[in-house]
C-alpha cells in the first residue's frame, strides 16, 4: 500500500509573513498532514500554533512526542526539538544536537519525511537567511517527492531558497501565490 501524501515546509527569516499567505489558504477539506519547521529561539515558548490556529481552517498543533498523525492537520516543530516523521501514523521529537546551529532543523524533518513518504511527499522551502533545508530537499527530490522553492526574488530572505535550488536544481520555483494554488490541487 502506498503512503498517503504529506506536506513538509521549512522557513526561517520572514517565515511568519510567508506562512500567513500559505496556511490560511488551505481549505477545511484539506486531506494531507502538514509539517512545518520554523527556526525559533530555543529558550522561549512558541506561539506559532496559536497564531495560526486563529487564522486557519484546519487544526494546528505544536507537535508532541509520538503524537498520532491526523489528516488535514498542521504540526509545528516545538522550539529546541527536532521534528521527525516516525511512521505514517506517528511523529517523533528528538533533542539530538542542533544541525547547522538549528534545532528544530528543516533538514532533519525533510530527511525523515523522505524516508517515510517517498514520492507521496511535497516539500516547500520558503524564505530564510541560511542554507538549512537544502540537503533535505535534495533527498526528497531523489526519493521521487515533489519539490517546490519560493521564488528567491520575492522571498524576504533569499539565501534559503537559493541554497535549496543549488542543492536541488530540479525544484520548481514559484511565488507564494503559486505555491498556495499548487497546494489546493494536491
Amino acid at each position: 500500500m502506498s503512503a498517503p501524501g504529506a506536506i513538509v515546509i521549512g522557513a526561517s527569516a520572514g517565515a511568519l509573513e510567508a506562512l500567513s499567505v500559505l496556511l490560511p489558504a488551505l481549505p477545511a477539506s484539506f486531506a494531507s498532514p502538514v509539517f512545518v519547521v520554523v527556526h525559533l529561539p530555543p529558550d522561549r515558548k512558541s506561539i506559532l500554533a496559536e497564531i495560526f490556529q486563529a487564522k486557519c481552517r484546519i487544526p494546528v498543533h505544536e507537535a508532541e512526542d509520538k503524537e498520532p498523525i491526523m489528516a488535514g492537520t498542521i504540526y509545528f516543530a516545538p522550539p529546541n526539538y527536532h521534528l521527525l516523521i516516525e511512521t505514517e501514523n506517528s511523529l517523533a521529537l528528538s533533542s539530538d544536537e542542533p544541525v547547522r546551529y538549528s534545532r528544530p532543523s528543516i533538514d532533519v524533518l525533510f530527511e525523515s519525511a523522505a524516508d517515510t513518504y517517498g514520492p507521496a511527499l511535497t516539500a516547500i522551502v520558503l524564505t530564510g537567511a541560511n542554507p538549512d533545508g537544502a540537503d533535505g530537499l535534495r533527498r526528497i527530490g531523489l526519493a521521487g517527492g515533489t519539490v517546490l522553492v519560493q521564488d528567491p526574488t520575492e522571498a524576504m530572505a533569499p539565501e534559503m531558497p537559493l541554497a535549496a535550488l543549488a542543492a536541488c536544481p530540479t525544484a520548481q520555483v514559484l511565488p507564494l501565490a503559486g505555491i498556495a494554488s499548487f497546494l489546493l490541487g494536491v
Binding site: L84, A92, S94, D96
Partner: peptide, 9 residues
C-alpha cells in the same frame, strides 16, 4: 527505539 532517530544516528 524510535526508528527515525535511530536511522539518523
Amino acid at each position: 527505539y524510535a526508528a527515525a532517530s535511530v536511522k539518523r544516528r
